[in-house]
Every structure is written in C-alpha cells, then in structure tokens.
C-alpha cells in the first residue's frame, strides 16, 4: 500500500467511526453509545493491556543486553556513568524514569545532512522530541482534567490543573492550553509523517489511524467546549453515572458528545492491539531496564541448555603427534 492509500484508508475508517454514533444516536440508541460501548471499551482496554503485558512477561529475558550509552563501571578513578550505563538498580530506575518521563533517548536525535563530496553532518534535531513531549503531556493533562466528569466533588488536583491550564484567563469558557497543545501536537506528528519522505515511506495505516482518531477526539472535544455547546449538566450526569456504576442516560445531550465519547471508546479498545502499547512496553525493554553488570553478577537464563562442543580431548586426539613434535604439552603421550 502506498502512502496516500494508507491515509485514505485511515481517514475513511475514522469517518465511518464518526458516522456510527451520528446515525445511532439520532435513531435513539443512546444507551448503546452512552453506556454499553464505553463500558465495553474500558473492559477491553484493561483486559487487553494486562493480557499484553502478561504475554510479554511470559517470554523470559535470557541475556542481559542493555544498550550502554555511557562509561562502564570499572575503576574508582574512572567516572562511571551510572545513568546511561547503570551498574545497579538505582541507576536503572533513574534511567527508566528519565526515559519514560522525559524521552531521553529521543532527545539525542540528530538529523543527517548529506552533501556532495561526500560530506556528512549531523544537525541537531530536537523537534521530534519537543513534539512528542507536547503531544504526550497535553494528552495527559487533558485526560486528567476529564476526571472532573467522573468525580463529585471534583478532586482538588483537577481544580488545580484547570487553573494552571487555563492561566491565560481568556475567553468564556476559559481557554485551556492543553486542548490546543494536543491539537497542535497531533497535527505536528501528522505533518511530520507526510512531509519527511522516508517517514512517509515507512508509515502504515496503523500509523495514520491513531493520529486521525486522536485528532477527531480532540476536535470534537474543542468544538463541544468552545463552539457547539452541549448540555454539560446532562453530560456530567451520564459520566458520573458511569463512574459510580449507576448509569443513566439523560435526554437532550447533543450528538456531538456521543461522537466524542464513541471515538474515545474506540481509542481505548484499540489501544492494547496497536502500536499504542508502547506506553506499557517501554517499561519492559531489555535494552533499557537492565543494569550492565553481567561481569559482576551472573545473569541466569531459564532455558540455558547443554550444547554440543568440540572438547579438548577430541582436539588433542586429532593433533597429538603434531603437538608433541612442536613441543606443546599434551595430556596423553600416546
């Protein structure tokens, strides 16, 4: 499949997903889209993620294969880089924290510049890192802000987050930075994917689909908040009902809300079966989450099995005479 086919396919898929609740809710299937599907999606999400992690965990880590990105621990007088080349658990934990929270490896990124001659240079390229940070953190903030819909009274954390997020104090309702940042982030990731030829070349429908889906989720969310108001009291009634397992479906919530909710449900359900599982997988990566201490502490391979070797005895049997002649010591003289 070429790039445009992949994009069209994903776009159509998201388009269909938008239409489903549009048709369904108009036809009165509010419980299906307001209760059943969201519940099902959350179940699929949790069961799916756990199943996925268990599936990974069932495969052992036979060898300790960290990618070492700094000086090893050797002598006291050589400064070891316990962060990029950890030799103990503390270092590993720190390395993982920075990897997961700050995308440290991505921060190393450079861009190839190839000139005639040939001459090669590696330019600094932090945009991907920045884009990823903006995307993931704004997503996190938006996600946390939504806890407002599932708690009563609203937890102070969320209120705090809202006041920080809306610090610009413009507009009514107050403008949240995170929503726009998320839209910008997802747009950047998309534009990057289509404008860098190599990246476009490697992209699959499953790379475009989540971008379009998240774009649609963000867009419907923003529309609801700033443009086409939905019945916010009704929405909270519905979401709080979901959270407390007393689902109710109030009348008169706009269909836009159901579209938003449905797309979010799809994202949840899609998550464990897609590349989005990198969120869980990064914690298990053996090139990052192991110390480089296998010369100090023996690593055990659970399936280590005996192998056929060519023994010294066999070797000497073959070469004994030549060895004796050359004055090399042998085990057996005959």
């Amino acid at each position: 499949m070429n790039a445009s086919q992949s994009m069209v396919f994903s776009l159509v898929a998201v388009g269909i997903l938008v239409c489903l609740p549009l048709i369904g809710v108009t036809a009165g299937m509010t419980s299906l889209f307001g209760v059943i599907i969201p519940y099902a999606a959350v179940v699929v999400f949790f069961v799916g993620i756990v199943a996925r992690v268990v599936r990974w965990a069932r495969s052992p880590v036979p060898f300790r294969i960290p990618t070492t990105c700094g000086q090893q621990k050797s002598f006291p007088w050589i400064k070891a880089d316990n962060l990029d080349n950890p030799s103990d658990t503390k270092g590993v934990v720190l390395r993982m924290i920075l990897e997961v929270l700050l995308f440290r490896s991505l921060f190393r990124n450079t861009r190839l510049e190839f000139y005639d001659g040939p001459k090669i240079r590696y330019a600094s390229a932090k945009w991907l890192w920045l884009g990823a940070i903006v995307f993931h953190y704004s997503f996190l903030v938006v996600f946390l802000r939504h806890l407002r819909f599932f708690t009563e009274p609203v937890t102070p954390l969320v209120t705090l987050l809202e006041s920080v997020d809306g610090f610009l104090e413009v507009g009514l309702p107050r403008l949240y930075i995170s929503g726009l940042a998320l839209l910008a982030g997802v747009t950047y990731l998309f534009l990057r994917r289509v404008s860098i030829p190599q990246l476009k070349y490697i992209s699959l429908p499953s790379d475009y689909f989540p971008l379009f889906l998240i774009f649609a989720i963000t867009a419907t969310g923003l529309l609801m908040r700033y443009v086409f108001k939905v019945d916010i009291v009704g929405v909270k009634e519905l979401t709080f009902g979901l959270a407390t397992f007393h689902p109710v479906v109030p009348k008169g919530i706009g269909v836009l809300f159901y579209i938003h909710l449905f797309l979010v449900s799809v994202l949840f359900a899609y998550f464990p079966f897609s590349k989005l599982v990198h969120m869980a997988g990064v914690f298990l990566s053996p090139t990052r989450n192991l110390p480089n201490n296998s010369r100090m502490v023996r690593h055990i391979n659970p399936w280590n099995y005996p192998v056929k070797v060519h023994t010294y005895e066999e070797y000497e049997d073959e070469f004994r005479e030549k060895m004796i002649e050359a004055g090399l010591p042998v085990e057996k003289k005959e």
């Binding site: 599936r55 880590v61 490896s105 991907l128 990823a132 190599q198 699959l204 990566s285 053996p286």
Partner: peptide, 23 residues
C-alpha cells in the same frame, strides 16, 4: 518469540517514529 522477550516486545512496540532511520 517465546524465548526472547526482546524479540516479542520489539515486534509490538515500534511506533515508526523514524528516529532510528538515518542513524
């Protein structure tokens, strides 16, 4: 896949961000 977590995991989690591409 059953013997090496590395293999199984690396089959699943690549997001095709392309950071490795020109390295």
């Amino acid at each position: 896949l059953n013997k090496f977590r590395s293999f199984k995991l690396f089959m699943d989690i690549c997001v095709r961000c392309g950071a490795c591409a020109d390295k």
